[in-house]
Amino acid sequence: MNRQCMISCHNRVSIGAGCMFGPGVRIFDNNHKFSKDGGVSCALNTGEIIVGNNCWIASDVILLKGTHIGDNCVIGAGCIIDGAIPPSTIVRQKQHLDYQPIYK
C-alpha cells in the first residue's frame, strides 16, 4: 500500500499475494442505498472485492463493490473498476482531451 490509500470494508475485501498499490487508491465494497422517493440513506449495499495475486493497482484507482480482478493484472492510473477483469489484463483509461484556443 502506498500513501493516502483507503479501504472501506463492510463485507469482504481480499487482496492476493505480491500486489502493489500506488498512492491514492480507494477501495469501497459498499455504497449508500438510495431511492427516488427517499433519497440517500445511511443503509448500505455491499458486495465483495477480490484482487488476485501479483497485481499492480496504479495511483488514484477506485475499486467498487463487486469487483473481481484476476491474477497478474495492471490497473492503470485513474481507472474506476466495477466488475470482472480477466487474469493477465492491462486496464487503462483512455480519455479524449478537447483543446480549444483562447480568443479573448
Results as ranks from 00 to 15, higher is better:
residue 65 K to S: 12
residue 86 P to N: 02
residue 98 D to C: 11
residue 67 T to G: 00
residue 61 V to H: 03
residue 35 S to F: 00
residue 54 N to S: 13
residue 16 G to N: 08
residue 104 K to I: 09
residue 38 G to C: 10
residue 73 C to H: 09
residue 34 F to K: 01
residue 28 F to Y: 15
residue 12 R to I: 12
residue 4 Q to H: 13
residue 87 P to D: 10
residue 22 G to A: 11
residue 17 A to F: 15
residue 6 M to W: 14
residue 70 G to D: 10
residue 34 F to G: 04
residue 35 S to C: 02
residue 18 G to L: 13
residue 70 G to K: 08
residue 38 G to T: 12
residue 23 P to S: 13
residue 26 R to S: 14
residue 71 D to Q: 06
residue 36 K to H: 09
residue 59 S to Y: 02
residue 21 F to T: 01
residue 49 I to V: 02
residue 75 I to N: 02
residue 12 R to D: 15
residue 2 N to T: 10
residue 97 L to T: 09
residue 46 T to Q: 03
residue 26 R to F: 07
residue 56 W to H: 12
residue 82 D to K: 03
residue 95 Q to T: 14
residue 84 A to Y: 11
residue 36 K to M: 11
residue 81 I to N: 00
residue 28 F to L: 06
residue 83 G to D: 03
residue 27 I to H: 00
residue 67 T to S: 13
residue 57 I to Y: 06
residue 41 S to Q: 06
residue 97 L to H: 06
residue 46 T to E: 04
residue 49 I to A: 03
residue 28 F to M: 04
residue 87 P to H: 09
residue 2 N to P: 00
residue 74 V to P: 01
residue 22 G to V: 07
residue 55 C to V: 05
residue 42 C to G: 13
residue 12 R to E: 15
residue 56 W to M: 10
residue 40 V to A: 04
residue 9 C to R: 04
residue 60 D to V: 07
residue 104 K to D: 15
residue 88 S to Q: 13
residue 41 S to W: 04
residue 45 N to K: 08
residue 64 L to E: 10
residue 46 T to C: 04
residue 14 S to H: 11
residue 26 R to T: 14
residue 76 G to E: 13
residue 46 T to V: 12
residue 91 V to F: 03
residue 33 K to H: 14
residue 50 I to R: 11
residue 19 C to F: 08
residue 40 V to L: 06
residue 11 N to R: 11
residue 15 I to T: 05
residue 27 I to V: 15
residue 48 E to Y: 09
residue 103 Y to P: 05
residue 59 S to A: 15
residue 28 F to A: 01
residue 92 R to C: 05
residue 44 L to I: 11
residue 79 C to Q: 05
residue 89 T to N: 00
residue 59 S to R: 12
residue 83 G to T: 08
residue 7 I to G: 03
residue 84 A to K: 11
residue 13 V to R: 07
residue 56 W to N: 11
residue 41 S to K: 01
residue 46 T to H: 02
residue 13 V to A: 07
residue 31 N to A: 12
residue 44 L to Q: 03
residue 17 A to T: 13
residue 95 Q to L: 15
residue 59 S to M: 08
residue 15 I to Y: 00
residue 13 V to F: 02
residue 76 G to N: 06
residue 57 I to G: 07
residue 67 T to V: 05
residue 93 Q to D: 08
residue 23 P to L: 06
residue 41 S to P: 09
residue 48 E to Q: 13
residue 33 K to Y: 14
residue 20 M to R: 14
residue 27 I to M: 01
residue 50 I to W: 03
residue 53 N to R: 14
residue 39 G to V: 07
residue 77 A to L: 05
residue 47 G to T: 06
residue 64 L to V: 07
residue 86 P to D: 09
residue 8 S to H: 08
residue 87 P to F: 07
residue 82 D to G: 00
residue 51 V to W: 04
residue 61 V to N: 01
residue 67 T to P: 04
residue 10 H to F: 15
residue 99 Y to C: 09
residue 74 V to K: 07
residue 78 G to Q: 07
residue 101 P to K: 11
residue 73 C to E: 10
residue 33 K to L: 09
residue 45 N to I: 07
residue 6 M to D: 14
residue 26 R to N: 11
residue 63 L to I: 13
residue 72 N to D: 14
residue 68 H to W: 04
